[in-house]
Design a protein around this nucleic acid. Structure first.
Lengths: 198, 198, 198, 198
DNA sequence: AATGAATGAGGGTTCATTCAT
DNA sequence: GATGAATGAACCCTCATTCAT
């Protein structure tokens, strides 16, 4: 990347950043291109020069965000920690990543145009789920996870928990603040609602 | 209710119905009053005559939907079934209720304007959570649920699972179609991800 | 008028009354038929049954108001008072009549649709000006008013003073409250701005 | 002002001009933004780009108009003419300025929304009345105006005459056409209605 | 005679996007 | 490459008026 392209990429990044924050706070639908332009300190037409439409900007922002999440998860999975430890880290890493605006971004993404949703969903499955499958496989190999529950169900379960946690910023905030609550939830996630007696 | 009021309520219901379907499919923000009017086969002004603004229509639709859900849940909880049975029924009843548009409606509701969100959230907590608390209490009394996990965490867990399931129509559809999947998820929900070896 | 027509006229009067107050407070344009109906405690369609359109209602209200003013002025002019006394009374009677809403009604009338304006203007000339001409003639006969100023100019002058006073409610209020101010204005009206020395 | 700003100001001016004419003819309330856009030959959105709302456009138009009036009056008052001459010029200058749409603009302004009215009223008092006070003071110093009539009353009198003259376009037209009428009115204004016999 | 239901026309405003400089 | 100007489409909402009971 020469100086030219570097400057260009820097401007793109600053637009993306402004967009990300606004999308996170107000949702995709409520944020206008002009809002983003104002926050990024450029003309709104400049946004069209760099990204071709609002939809492309949204896609770009979301892709970037997911890639960051993938990177983080990758590190955890490839680390030397124990399986249960990784499981916690993954879930906490997500939660950790999900600072105020992250949760909102995902939440908004879910509710966007069908096309955008398809796009995000595909990305998610290709990248995040691939990582989770690896983790689950490790769990099975090490005997933590019973093999009579399908991988599909586990992925879905993971997804549901994740979507549930991300559905409300308030939820995330409560989890982050209240350690006992986080611990309880983790236990429910790992060992279920029912008290196995005997 | 005399003839006048009956016809009026019928018209209100038909508008609500059209609104419900559209909100469910496209989300609150994407559906205009005129869209609803077209679908309901009335002038859009008629909608304003019956509901005073878009926000009031949204609230009305959501309230109605939640009330239906409450009623259904109430029946289950008050029934004579065994606790685990009730648990399943509740979860299935929700899922069952959540035909295509139901899931979307809730999904959209989550993502709406702060005011509307507050409104829904309050309704939810007052009505649905009250029912769940009853059920959890019953679980505890009957020894199914360990008492060292806070009620708060359990409600949140329930909520997360629910929000997660409702987050994607596709998810709901898969659950409804695939009995093995539904069963696996139920086991994960009740007994957790980790295989307790003993 | 039999009982039937009496009840009918009473209803018309109550609608007129509600309309008058609202027009006075908010101006013709800002008051809707439904506003009037609400205030009069009838259905808005009832207004259409009694008056055929908003314009006709406006005309009716204005006509009524002017007729009241004419009646009051007539009494003054036909009274036994001295000319200057009558002059004062007329001006004060107008001002007196112009309690908050009267001034506004006239003000609003001036700014209404061309047709309505024409209508009011015609009424005004036919009724109020006719009275003023009588009064001016009396002034001339009794030697108060010089005859080398045209009647037309005097009428216009009167009109300007009246329109000016009515243009702002605030003005009317100040005049009513401040006796010295009222007196000064009267002197300016009768003897002019310039101090005739000699 | 560079080329950019010049073109911008020109467009603003053309919109203002179209708005002014329409407001003058039909009143603020009756003229829609789209009407103005049509007359100015631009999209109605362009108006929103230059002025932010209808209210701001109205305020801008009125401010501009008053500023023009102030400028003209300032010239007269600062000139070398005799006091009575200035008095006439001022009144005629106003009348002269009040070509068809001017009178209507003021008339409409009087009847507008409370906020806009407040705004105009303040401007008027700060600018126009300040000039009049200067003129009245000059009249007093030079012995034309008796000092036992309060300044307040004189300003109000001036205002009433002005408002009266401006209340009806027809009035202004008659004054402009008929020299004898203008002269008579001037005499009434300066020397009053009553023939002071000595 | 009185009313609630229903509507077409229109008002102010915002937005994503294109044009011209 | 960056920008201000311009716009068509759409949105929420209100109003005077007519229809059906």
């Amino acid at each position: 990347m020469n100086g030219f392209e570097l400057r260009k990429e820097r401007k793109r990044e600053s637009i993306r950043h402004a967009a990300m924050e606004l999308f996170g706070t107000y949702g995709f639908g409520k944020v206008s291109i002009k809002d983003i332009a104002r926050k990024a300190g450029v003309s709104h037409v400049t946004i069209y020069n760099h990204f071709n439409s609002k939809e492309e900007l949204v896609n770009d922002v979301v892709r970037t965000e997911i890639e960051r999440l993938v990177e983080k998860s990758r590190e955890i999975i490839d680390s030397e920690s124990d399986f249960l430890e990784k499981m916690n880290l993954i879930r906490f890493s997500k939660v950790g990543l999900a600072s105020r605006y992250n949760g909102e971004v995902m939440k908004a993404a879910i509710n966007n145009s069908p096309e955008t949703y398809e796009y995000i969903d595909k990305l998610w499955r290709e990248k995040i789920n691939k990582l989770l499958v690896e983790l689950i496989e490790e769990g099975r190999r090490k005997g933590y996870i019973s093999s009579d529950i399908s991988q599909e169900a586990m992925l879905l379960y993971f997804d549901m928990i994740r979507a549930g946690a991300f559905a409300s910023v308030e939820t995330l905030d409560r989890i982050k603040i209240d350690a006992k609550l986080a611990d309880d939830l983790n236990r429910l996630f790992l060992y279920g609602l029912i008290d196995k007696k005997d």
